[in-house]
Structure formats: structure tokens, C-alpha cells
Deep mutational scan, measured.
Amino acid sequence: SKIRITWGDKTWEWDGDDEEVWKRILEWARNLGDEELWRHVKEWVDK
């Protein structure tokens, strides 16, 4: 399956939905430097 994140007018996609993928997404969000996006992603990961 895919994980799709839409933020503003951008959309990103990742293949898979296991823990490793979420770790990569969390790292990606942090590297993007958008605090609010990172917080949202972290909330999803922690669920």
C-alpha cells in the first residue's frame, strides 16, 4: 500500500506502510524544516 501526504499544494507518496516507512517519513518531515508538518506526522506515527 501507499502512504500519501498532502500539505498545502504539494503531495508526496511512499510505498508501504510499515514502521520503517513511517520513520523515514518522520525524518523527511524534520529535514523539510516545517515544524507544523513534522508535528502532524508525529501524531500519525504515535497512533
Rank of each mutant, 00 (worst) to 15 (best):
D18L: 06
I25T: 01
T6I: 12
V45Y: 15
V21S: 06
D17C: 04
G8E: 08
E35L: 08
T11G: 02
D18I: 09
E36K: 05
K23F: 08
K23P: 05
D18S: 13
G8Y: 08
E20N: 12
W38D: 05
K47V: 14
H40A: 13
V45R: 04
W44P: 00
T6G: 01
E20H: 15
W22G: 06
K47C: 02
R24G: 07
E36T: 07
G16P: 08
R24K: 12
K42V: 15
E27V: 12
V41T: 01
D46G: 02
V41N: 00
W12G: 06
D15H: 11
V45E: 11
R30L: 13
R24M: 11
G33P: 07
D15T: 07
T6H: 09
D34P: 05
E20S: 13
V41Y: 02
W28I: 02
E27N: 09
S1A: 13
V21L: 06
W44K: 02
R39A: 13
R39I: 14
N31F: 07
T6W: 04
R39C: 04
R39D: 14
D17V: 06
K10F: 09
K2A: 10
W7D: 01
T11N: 05
D46C: 10
H40I: 13
E13P: 00
W7F: 08
E35F: 03
W12T: 05
D15M: 06
L37Q: 01
W7S: 02
D46T: 03
E19K: 14
N31A: 13
V21M: 06
D46Q: 04
T6A: 04
W14T: 01
K42D: 06
D15Q: 10
D17S: 11
E20A: 13
R24N: 14
D18T: 11
E43W: 06
E19L: 08
K10V: 10
L26D: 06
K10Y: 10
D46E: 14
W7P: 00
D34I: 11
E20V: 10
E19S: 13
S1L: 12
G33Y: 05
V45A: 15
L26P: 00
K2N: 10
L32I: 12
T6S: 11
D15R: 04
H40F: 15
G16L: 11
D46V: 03
K23A: 08
G33F: 06
G16W: 12
L26T: 10
R24W: 06
W12Y: 14
D9F: 02
I3C: 02
G16M: 10
R4L: 10
T6K: 08
H40V: 15
E43Y: 07
W44Y: 08
L32S: 14
D9L: 02
V21W: 03
W28L: 03
K47D: 07
D46Y: 03
D46P: 04
D9T: 08
E36G: 04
T6V: 13
G8S: 06
W12E: 04
I5H: 01
W14A: 02
E36L: 07
E27I: 09
R39H: 11
K42P: 01
W7L: 05
L32C: 07
G16Q: 10
E19D: 11
I3A: 01
W22N: 05
E35Y: 07
K2I: 10
D15L: 05
W22A: 04
W22P: 05
W38T: 12
L32R: 10
R30F: 13
L32A: 13
D18A: 08
D9A: 05
E35Q: 08
G8C: 06
R4S: 15
E35H: 07
I25A: 05
W7N: 01
G16T: 10
I25W: 01
E13N: 03
L37N: 01
D46I: 04
K42T: 15
K2T: 12
I3D: 01
D17G: 11
K10T: 10
G33H: 08
E13Q: 06
I5Y: 07
W12L: 04
N31Q: 10
V45N: 07
A29Q: 01
W38F: 15
R4N: 10
S1G: 14
V41K: 00
E35N: 04
D9H: 06
W44E: 07
V45D: 04
G33V: 05
E43V: 04
T11M: 08
E35P: 10
L32M: 15
W44L: 15
G16V: 08
V45G: 08
T11H: 08
E35T: 07
K47I: 14
E20P: 04
L32Q: 15
A29K: 00
W44S: 02
R39W: 09
K47P: 04
W7G: 00
K23S: 11
E43A: 06
E27P: 00
K47M: 15
K10I: 10
E43S: 03
G8N: 10
D46L: 03
K10M: 13
I5L: 13
E20K: 11
R39L: 15
R24Q: 14
R24H: 12
W22R: 09
D18G: 14
A29D: 00
V41L: 10
G8V: 03
R24F: 07
L37G: 02
E19G: 11
S1Y: 13
K42M: 14
W44M: 13
T11V: 14
K2F: 11
T11D: 07
W22H: 10
L26Q: 08
H40C: 09
E36F: 04
N31G: 14
R4D: 05
R39Q: 15
K47W: 03
K42S: 15
V45C: 06
V41A: 02
W22Y: 15
K47F: 08
N31T: 14
V21C: 03
E27R: 03
A29S: 05
L32W: 13
E43R: 04
E20D: 14
R4T: 14
W14P: 00
D17P: 09
D15N: 11
E35A: 09
W7Y: 12
H40G: 15
K23N: 13
R24Y: 07
I3E: 00
R30C: 09
T6L: 05
K2E: 10
R39M: 13
H40K: 12
E43H: 05
A29C: 05
E36A: 07
K10L: 11
G33K: 09
W14K: 00
N31I: 06
L26C: 06
A29H: 02
R39Y: 13
I25M: 04
V21G: 03
V41E: 00
E36P: 06
E19Q: 12
I25L: 05
R39G: 12
W44A: 06
D34Q: 04
W38Q: 11
D9W: 02
E20R: 12
W22M: 11
V41M: 04
W7E: 00
E43M: 04
R4W: 12
I25Y: 01
R4A: 11
E35K: 05
E43F: 04
